[in-house]
Structures are given as C-alpha cells and as structure tokens.
Amino acid sequence: MKGKIKFFPTLLFTLVVVFWVALLSGNLMWTSNNPPLQIIDDMDDQAKVKPQVSSAFFADGKGTRDPLENTLPITGHKYSVELDDVDVKNINNIPATDIVLARGQNRFNIYCSPCHNYDGKGNGLVAQRGFSNPPNLMENAKNLSDGRIFHIISAGQNIMSSYADKTSELDRWAIVHYIRAMQKGSVNPQPVAFNK
C-alpha cells in the first residue's frame, strides 16, 4: 500500500464510521410514522382481543364489553345516590389518618388541581385557560356536608363532570378528608409532598 492517501475514499470512510458510531451509541435517532418492521413475527401479534381494541365478532364492534344490565362491578357499586339522600347514604367510614390525607392530597392534585388549583382556591392552570370560574373550595365548600362533597365528586355538578370513573370510593373520601384538612389549615397544600 504505497502512494498518497486518496481524499474521497478517506472522507467516505470517515463519514461511514461517524454514522455507525453515532447510531450505535444512541445519539442518532430517526423517527418513523410506520410501525416497527417485523422480519420474524414470533407470535408477536396473537389473534386475541386485547384491551381497548375493536372486535369484528360483536355487532357493535366493541372489543371491551359493557357490563350486563343489573350487574355490579366486583370492586364497588355504581354511584346512584340522589341529592336529597346525600347525608343519609354517603357515610364517611374511613379515619383521617396521615396516610389517608396523603392519599387525598395525591388524588386531589391529580384530578382536582387542574381547575381548583393545589390550594383549592380555584384558578388552576386549566381554569386560567378558559374553564369557567371553579368555586373556591376553601370558602364555598366549607358549609357543605361531607356527603354532599362526596356527591359532587361522584356525580358532578354544573359544568364539572363525574369523577366516579377515575376515583375509587375510598379515594373520594380521602379527597373529602384532604379538603377538610386544607379548610382547617392543618395541612400544607403543595404540588409534591405531603406536609403536615
């Protein structure tokens, strides 16, 4: 191998090396709209109904079936309390221990804070974007009974929709406890950690 080093082959070689090193070290990524290529499909896609997919087997095309009429989920009951019965039927049986309040804060921060804000005073980030005037829980909800607040979370009120599908009954009671604790000022409302 005598003679001078040729320019273009050297450049090409360098580019190829840089390309592979960048790719294999994970610093180069191209995106694609197409699903990953399956060269060998080792039963990766099995003919079964998976969650949240459609199914041609049923006339309505729903893979996930609705519960039958007059049946209840094993985890609880469907919320169907009327507004007049809230104090009789919605009884809070769980104690307001620290861990329950921490759970309440966690759930409140996820589901309530977008509109009601972390401190419950309304004016959350979503409310600022045009959700109409959420009530200040520290003032307006002070005179409501626990059962009534539970009812509002479960069934919705005015423009607020029901959160019964997102929160379990226990979690809803934990949220009620947390709102009460915030009203009393016995917890320090904040986005991250539980702080008494």
Binding site: I94, P95, T97, I99, V100, R103, S168, L170, D171
Partner: peptide, 11 residues
C-alpha cells in the same frame, strides 16, 4: 406507613 393506614382497600 402500611401499619398507619388501617384502611383496607386503600391503594
């Protein structure tokens, strides 16, 4: 913490 909970079913 688990001992403090005392609420069966709480996640």
């Amino acid at each position: 913490e688990l001992k403090q909970s005392g609420v069966p079913g709480l996640v």
